[in-house]
Design a protein around this nucleic acid. Structure first.
Length: 437
RNA sequence: GGUCCCAUCGUCUAGUGGCCUAGGACACAGCCCUUUCAAGGCUGCGGCACGGGUUCGAAUCCCGUUGGGACCGCCA
């Protein structure tokens, strides 16, 4: 019933898709999908010196990766195109000329400048921030067309939002002070205004605007660190918005269902990696096992491992054993490397910490373990428990050396589960290498 | 400096005059579970920036102070 909602995300292709941009795009997308409206992608490439086609593509790939699909845009097309500002010059020229003809703008050099009327109070109702007003006295005249013939941001955004029939302008709070200027332009042109909804800023840990100083700023860096699009999506949604009940974990569909612009908060939010990690971890554990394997593969390869040589079911079971372990796919890959090859185990553990007397004792244990029990985790565990009790030892006295020998680390899932999955033969090989069998 | 915006645990937030001796999540600490680490369960730590009002009653409304942020480009 509210099919008339049209929103847009309008990045300038002067860099990768960064956190702030992704956050803004996400909220626009949510509002469009919520209302069955249209999500428009517009490329604001009027800065001819800094805009590049490569960045335009990276931004689009970043949006797709996050699952933010758009209905109209540069390559997609649509009824209000073209969707690149550099291809819409005549529209800005025309409208600048109208303002010139109306006597509301003047020329200076080759630029066209709008003269701001005096004594006017400009007020608007922001969906998030409420009533905002400003005196026109505090505004300088507004450059519409630059000397190079290209429009400025403030002019192009008004012309395009109107011509593209945008009904909700949803953007960062740093644009609040631009809004009165734009309203003046809408009024001068005799155009109806869209609704405005400004979003709280995302700050770094020092509460300053997010920049490269704060580490990773582009969504691609997060992808490369092993964050899931679902994890980032979920975390971004939590910045400046909450469903109101205590639910914090959701997928895209649930977010669309729950979202409402009226619940967006005003206070700037600090980007917290710990929370992102926690959210991402949950989404990793929710992954379909087979899909998880596919997603972890590139990270195994990054470690020099060769997952393609192994059976998919085996890898999938290995990751299932890991259960909640790993905040990122990269960690999951690192935590499971010993399933892929014994080489990594040998590299980090030389077995020199085991004394000869320990060795002969352990040899006795492992020999019996291989003889007596079926190759089953439960059986191995109960045998180990029994055996160590008889010897006046603790379970960990055998479990830890076992763990070190087959994983090369002190940290792993239940070691008998690991051995069971690895198989009798492979386990024997590893124990023999360390002289334990 | 001018203009605008914001202000609940360290962080993200719930809260729209009484249900709040302020709830949840992350982080942190402890305990349980336990072959290690996680996961899970339980407990704890910790906040309404301050000062005035308004009201029978303020985290919630008003004013001020302080603090923080954004914008003030022929960048977007």
């Amino acid at each position: 019933m509210k099919g008339d909602v049209r929103v847009r995300f309008a990045p300038s292709p002067t860099g990768a898709l960064h956190i702030g941009g992704a956050h803004t795009a996400l909220f626009n997308w949510l509002w469009a999908r919520k209302n069955g409206g249209a999500f428009v992608l517009r490329i604001e490439d009027t800065d001819r010196t800094r805009s590049t086609k490569e960045y335009e593509e990276t931004i689009m790939k970043g949006l797709r990766w996050l699952g933010l699909d758009w209905d109209e845009g540069p390559v997609t097309g649509g009824p209000c195109g073209p969707y690149r500002q550099s291809e819409r010059s005549h529209l800005y020229q025309e409208n600048a000329q109208r303002l010139l003809d109306l006597g509301l703008a003047y020329k200076d050099g080759d630029a066209v400048i709008f003269s701001v009327p005096k004594g006017k109070t400009i007020a608007f109702e922001d969906i998030v921030y409420g009533n905002i007003s400003m005196e026109s006295e505090t505004l300088k005249d507004i450059v519409l067309i630059k000397s190079d013939g290209f429009p400025t941001y403030n002019f192009a955004v008004v012309v395009d939002d109107y011509l593209m029939d945008i009904t909700y302008v949803i953007r960062g709070e740093d644009h609040i002070s631009n809004t009165p200027k734009q309203i003046l332009l809408y009024e001068a042109l005799g155009w109806r205004l869209p609704r405005f909804a400004h979003l709280p800023m995302i700050l770094g840990k020092d509460k300053k605007k997010l920049s490269k100083r704060h580490g990773a700023t582009s969504v691609y860096e997060y992808r490369d660190m092993g964050y899931l699009p679902e994890g980032l999506f979920n975390y971004f949604a939590l910045l400046g918005w909450s469903p109101g009940d205590n639910q914090e974990i959701f997928d895209r569909d649930e977010a669309v269902r729950l979202f409402d612009l009226s619940r967006v908060t005003k206070r700037a939010a600090v980007f917290d990696m710990d929370k992102l990690d926690a959210v991402n971890q949950i989404h990793i554990s929710r992954l379909d096992p087979q899909k998880r394997v596919e997603l972890v593969k590139p990270f195994w390869k990054e470690l020099g491992l060769e997952p393609e040589n192994l059976n998919g079911d085996f890898l999938s079971e290995a990751l299932e054993l890991l259960q909640g372990r790993g905040k990122t796919l990269r960690e999951v890959a690192a935590f499971s490397d010993y399933f892929l090859t014994f080489e990594v185990v040998k590299r980090r553990y030389d077995g020199s910490d085991i004394s000869d007397s320990q060795k002969s004792l352990l040899r006795e244990f492992f020999t019996q373990l291989f003889d007596k029990s079926r190759w089953d985790a439960h059986e191995m565990a109960s045998f180990a428990k029994e055996w160590s009790k008889d010897k006046g030892l603790k379970m960990k006295d055998v479990a830890m050396p076992f763990r070190m020998a087959i994983t090369g680390t002190k940290v792993s899932p239940g070691i008998f589960e690991v051995a069971a999955l690895l198989g009798k033969e492979e386990t024997a090989k590893r124990l023999q290498y360390y002289g334990l069998l």
